[in-house]
Computed example of a mutant assay.
Amino acid sequence: MMNSMTYKGYFARVEFDPRENIFVGRVLGVSDRISFHGDTVNELTDDFHQAVDHYLEDCAKTGRDPQKPASGKLMLRIRPEVHAAVGIAAAAAGKSINQWVDEVLARAAHA
């Protein structure tokens, strides 16, 4: 089971706090701390949406660009033999390395 949520391109990890008997979440991938909580899944979801909306409104009011969790660019350092094998696998699939890696990483991330 994955303990995550997504809203407007922002991803959050959710945990249950047994001491407080509430769900607690935190948005991942941005340096600003965006957290939220709720007693029920519906309250948690509502508070998550409100927290992201508040963050975006605050960024607009202060004239700063909101951070996004990812740019879509990923720089990797891998062993040359892995790089060669990736190139061969991509070519065999009739795809560019970027296309092939995108598909492989998407499958792995959603497994």
Score class of each variant (00 low, 15 high):
2 M>P: 13
5 M>W: 01
11 F>S: 00
12 A>G: 12
12 A>I: 02
16 F>H: 11
18 P>L: 10
25 G>C: 07
27 V>H: 06
27 V>M: 08
28 L>G: 06
30 V>M: 02
30 V>C: 09
31 S>V: 10
34 I>M: 01
34 I>H: 01
35 S>R: 09
37 H>C: 09
41 V>G: 03
41 V>H: 09
44 L>A: 10
45 T>I: 03
48 F>Y: 06
48 F>I: 02
49 H>R: 15
50 Q>K: 02
51 A>Y: 02
52 V>Y: 00
52 V>M: 00
53 D>H: 02
54 H>L: 10
54 H>W: 09
55 Y>P: 00
55 Y>Q: 05
57 E>K: 05
58 D>S: 05
59 C>G: 07
62 T>P: 01
63 G>E: 08
63 G>K: 00
64 R>A: 13
65 D>K: 15
65 D>H: 15
66 P>G: 04
68 K>Y: 07
69 P>V: 02
69 P>I: 01
71 S>P: 02
71 S>A: 03
72 G>Q: 04
72 G>D: 00
74 L>N: 01
74 L>F: 06
76 L>K: 06
77 R>E: 12
78 I>V: 11
84 A>N: 06
89 A>W: 06
89 A>F: 07
92 A>T: 14
95 K>S: 02
96 S>D: 11
97 I>T: 14
99 Q>W: 11
100 W>I: 03
102 D>H: 14
104 V>I: 15
106 A>F: 08
107 R>T: 00
